[in-house]
Design a protein around this nucleic acid. Sequence first.
DNA 1: CGGCTGCTTGAAATGAGTCAACATAGGTGG
DNA 2: CCACCTATGTTGACTCATTTCAAGCAGCCG
Lengths: 245, 245
Amino acid sequence: MEEQKINFKSLKASCKDCSLVELCLPRGLNHKDLHSLDDVIKQRRLLQKNERIFNQGEKSGCIYAVRSGSVKTFTTAKNGEEQVLGFHLPGEILGLDGLDNHIHSCSGVALDTATICELPIDELNVLCVKIPGLQQQLLSLISDEITKDHTMLLLLARRNAEQKIATFLINLSGRFKARGYSAEEFDLTMSRYDIGNYLGLADETVSRLISKFKENKLIDANRKKIAILDHEKLCGIAEGDYDLN
Amino acid sequence: MEEQKINFKSLKASCKDCSLVELCLPRGLNHKDLHSLDDVIKQRRLLQKNERIFNQGEKSGCIYAVRSGSVKTFTTAKNGEEQVLGFHLPGEILGLDGLDNHIHSCSGVALDTATICELPIDELNVLCVKIPGLQQQLLSLISDEITKDHTMLLLLARRNAEQKIATFLINLSGRFKARGYSAEEFDLTMSRYDIGNYLGLADETVSRLISKFKENKLIDANRKKIAILDHEKLCGIAEGDYDLN
DNA sequence: CGGCTGCTTGAAATGAGTCAACATAGGTGG
DNA sequence: CCACCTATGTTGACTCATTTCAAGCAGCCG
């Protein structure tokens, strides 16, 4: 069993779906294993804007990889109000909640036209026994998820509106870059309302601060279109080393 | 391989450590398996107040079960400020972050004199192959962790101070009850500052609202001692169905 | 072209934070 | 064993960041 490491680039070329890239990224798997993994991908789904991927409380038994477009996840509280939990770009995974009982504790919905791949958990678990590294890869993904949530708790609890928006933009920029898109210019697929909800702010506050960043030449913004003009200063604001007053 | 289910009570009696109860609680494992699990518990550690269990960024390779006393976990941001991530009571698990690379993304510290059990992840992983149900149990714990974090995101982003404190007290009460302690009277082992930090509030706000709840006869409180007097109304406040104005 | 939805901006209201003084409990040392 | 000291918690007065309410604007789809 030759555990030949293969890098991100060759993986991307050799495999039919980018979701695998994500699963395999942290530590390499060999080609044979990758192809058994390929077989696990049940289907690729094309989604229209606002179409649900999975619903809170529903049995599903899959995790999902975004192939194109973008997706948000959110929980619905007893009183019906929503809390956006995250936005997911191409190459990112969602649905790691409800990994045990196969019941999702949040919902996923397409923010624009999107394609996603479904990975049935049970088959993945079976494969985990066969492929030594895979179990670890899955744990790695989950671990990341927990760490991301913790970062988010810090952001929500301790940062002011300016820092929240700056952090959000820097974070998106970095994720676009990691996926091969421009880090300086991108489109927000989510509404101001969604951003506000995600960051614990009123949507008016989001609007106001985007305008303020624009006035200060940190970014250029026109509705959904965003351009990062001064990455460094924006980081400064995010980190709290610097503010606009 | 008789997969005889055993319940919480018998488990508690038959096993030397309550950490196992937690690991086995959702779905039963048979006795033989439980005892192999027992062997995995490396050691029981006695901790003094403020003693660290593990540190952010350190390699550790263990998850931890609280046996007695209580514990808080927190992340430290670049600028040195802390964010409390959670409080852990006897029978609860911590350290599920850094499950993959064995590096913790947060720190754990004893809030009072406490005993904890260490469960080495690698040995646990080995055991997972041998014991069919165990893998699932672990996933279940992790899944819970993610769901808990999501609930916390909602609390931080969408609730006012009154709702946050009420939710916090109700949640603690329920956890004490689940562990066999009184749901109506308990001690807070954490400081007002810690509670505030956890909930994204100033410690003065925590103090003020505890006093307000006291004035309104929802609770009785004297420093660390808390008594829940009107559970229903407190829930009402937590849910936002009701407020004190 | 009109209406709808999402975005922007302003003005006023307010919840929570900050600063500061004081109270109390628990621990320490004389 | 008492007196003091320090930690932690409480309370008040004031400030201010963010929300709320409200009106107007712009892009987009039928």
